[in-house]
Computed example of a mutant assay.
Amino acid sequence: MSGLDAHQLSLNTATVRPQWTLAQCIDGAARHGFGGISPWRDKLHEMGTDPAAKAIRDAGLRVSGLCRGGMFTADGPLSTEVMDDNRRAVDEAATIGADCLVMVVGGLQPASRDLPAAWETVEEGLARTLDHARGAGVKVAIEPLHPMYAADRACVNTMGHALDICDRLGEGIGVAVDVYHVWWDPNLSRQIERAGRDRLMAFHLCDWLVPTRDLLTDRGMMGDGVIDLPGLRRQVEAHGFDGLNEVEIFSAENWWKRDADEVLATVVERGRTAC
Rank of each mutant, 00 (worst) to 15 (best):
I173N: 05
F203R: 05
M103N: 02
L101H: 03
L130C: 04
G106I: 01
R87F: 12
I142L: 08
G125S: 09
P144E: 05
G106F: 00
E171M: 13
Y180E: 09
A117P: 02
D167S: 15
P110C: 10
L108P: 02
D152M: 07
R113F: 10
A195H: 08
L163I: 13
D152P: 01
G160I: 13
T121C: 06
A141C: 14
T121L: 06
V104Y: 00
L205C: 06
E123L: 06
E193T: 15
S189A: 15
E171N: 10
A93V: 00
A94G: 07
L115I: 14
W184P: 06
G97M: 09
W119Q: 09
M159S: 10
V138N: 09
R194Y: 15
I96F: 07
E120I: 03
A150R: 05
M148K: 12
G106P: 03
L101R: 02
L130I: 06
L188Y: 12
A118P: 01
R190Y: 14
V175Q: 05
R134T: 08
E120V: 11
D164I: 12
A89V: 01
L108D: 07
R113E: 10
H161S: 05
R88C: 02
V104M: 04
V102L: 08
F203E: 09
A176F: 02
T95Y: 00
R199M: 06
V102R: 01
R128S: 05
T129C: 04
H132G: 03
A136T: 00
D185F: 11
R87K: 13
D99P: 07
V177K: 04
H132N: 02
L169D: 11
F203L: 13
A118W: 00
G196Y: 15
H204P: 06
Q191H: 15
I173T: 09
R194P: 14
V177H: 06
L130M: 03
